[in-house]
């Protein structure tokens, strides 16, 4: 159901004439759902802006939300949902900010709402607001997805520290589940640290890794081979009994890669190696 040009014009006029009453009723509605988590003044400003957006769109003879004349309104709605999503409001709380306009308009229509013509207008207008609310909902979801992707990335970086253990020795203590994406980040970080610090030895400690599957083992192996190509040696430490069992059961070949049971053993091994070299 789309708005006719006349209906749009009538509502544009209505939004103009009753702006103060509308904004007040609208703000009150929204404030009730948000329960004081945004200040009254802030809400007032937002609803006033949205009202102006709706009015301009309708004055521009918008029949639905896809046209040229609603570009401004769409931008406003997108901005609103982005800020709500970032502030941690729920999808309902975000959509209500738009839906509440319907109630506010109904209030303004007052006694006329029993008139059949007015009612027909109102239904058309109401479907326009629904579209706006759906659009808001979509934008909200999109922003939330972006937020989640960003956070995942930040978490990846947080969870993979590469520390200098000794002169010429760096270590990566791996904690938690290693998936393909994380293994890749670890690999790149470790290799870059080797270059930056000029460390010919790296210890990959997997004490905190609950399980190793073929894919993860492959990633670790590739890291070790890449490090060798660059002129550095990797030692894997902290292999727990179950993981050793899995590695053998899966038929993963660790070849001539040095493996030690603990980080301390690995460091001792490296120091013995460097001591021999320095001789």
């Amino acid at each position: 159901m789309t708005l006719s040009v006349d209906e749009a014009a009538r509502f544009a006029a209505l939004l103009e004439e009753n702006q103060d009453a509308l904004v007040a009723a609208w703000t009150e509605q929204v404030a009730a759902t948000l329960r004081g988590r945004l200040s009254q003044a802030e809400l007032q400003r937002q609803t006033a802006e949205l009202r102006r957006g709706f009015q301009q769109a309708l004055a521009g003879a918008a029949r639905d939300l896809s046209g040229e004349s609603t570009a401004e309104l769409r931008a406003q709605l997108a901005e609103l949902s982005a800020s709500r999503a970032r502030q941690g409001f729920s999808a309902t709380e975000t959509a209500v900010s738009v839906f509440a306009l319907k109630e506010a308009v109904l209030g303004v229509l007052g006694d006329y709402s029993s008139d059949a013509a007015t009612l027909k207008d109102y239904v058309a207008f109401s479907s326009f607001v629904d579209q706006a609310a759906l659009f808001t909902f979509d934008s909200y979801v999109r922003v939330r997805e972006e937020l989640i992707a960003d956070q995942t990335e930040q978490l990846l970086e947080l969870s993979t520290p590469v520390v200098k253990l000794w002169e010429g020795v760096v270590a990566v203590p791996l904690v938690g589940t290693l998936d393909s994406a994380r293994a890749q980040v670890v690999m790149e970080r470790l290799l870059q640290t080797l270059v930056d610090t000029g460390s010919p030895y790296a210890i990959i400690d997997i004490t905190g890794v609950p399980a190793v599957d073929t894919q993860v083992a492959q990633h670790i192996l590739k890291t070790v081979v890449a490090a060798r190509l660059m002129g550095a040696d990797c030692i894997i430490s902290g292999i727990r009994p179950q993981i050793a069992q899995t590695i053998v059961a899966l038929g993963i070949e660790f070849g001539d890669i040095a493996t030690k049971s603990s980080l301390a053993d690995a460091l001792r091994y490296v120091l013995a190696q460097t001591g021999r070299k320095a001789r």
Binding site: L191, Q192, V195, A226, L229, M230
Partner: peptide, 8 residues
């Protein structure tokens, strides 16, 4: 590093 990873 990127070269080494690619070679592997």
């Amino acid at each position: 590093p990127a070269v080494a990873i690619t070679l592997v």
